[in-house]
Amino acid sequence: MKKMSYLDSVHRDGTIWNLSVMVLLLAFPVAVCVIFRTMPEWNSLAVGLLATAPLYWAVGAIETVTYVPMLGAGGAYLSFVTGNISNLKLPCALNALEQNEVSANSEEGEVVSTIAIAISSIVTTLIIVLGVVLIVPLTPVLQAPALQPAFDQILPALFGGLGVAFVSKNWKLAVAPVLLMLVLFIFVPALDAGTVGIMVPVSALFTIGIGRLLYKKGVL
């Protein structure tokens, strides 16, 4: 029998893990029903789902197609279980690729991004556990009004540093998309924190187009 490649085994294991976690997540409400002898209120449930699911499923589908090629195989299976992709897992993986000077498309790149994302997931989960255990003493500290501005500005603080690291290395590729996004976000009122997720694939497609053009012209 032919030995399975590393990537194939990642896909096999990832599928098993993700589908198992999915079943367990669905089992949680079932368990609550059984233990507390209740049933969902079906009509309201349908209304609630219709109001929520279509929008987030559409966004989820776009996110999957956009982020999977960036996260690598192992990183993608983990990230779509543990979440916080654009604000945590992806920057973490990007920084790790950069540090190790490996291409995202190589097997070394796959290994590096999986390691970074796994560590980030483990640390996040443990810090949340710590937060839950220590919620009583921690609440007044972390919710102190003096600290709120710092946590409100986490995304600008993150993308400032990451932007410098990436834009400076790919500035020819970055000029047009950065300018386009600046103009759109400044002058289109509908674009805000809620819609930035939708603009990621738009911006990515535009940048790929620019990249193709510059590559064909021999600029890159």
């Binding site: 400032g160 990436f166 790919n170 590729l173 996004m181 400044i186 674009l191 924190a193 930035v196 940048t207």
Partner: peptide, 18 residues
Amino acid sequence: SNALFIGMIAAFLGFVFC
């Protein structure tokens, strides 16, 4: 790959200015 990364970063840089 770089274009995907830059595209994402550009969207978030734009968001900073919203």
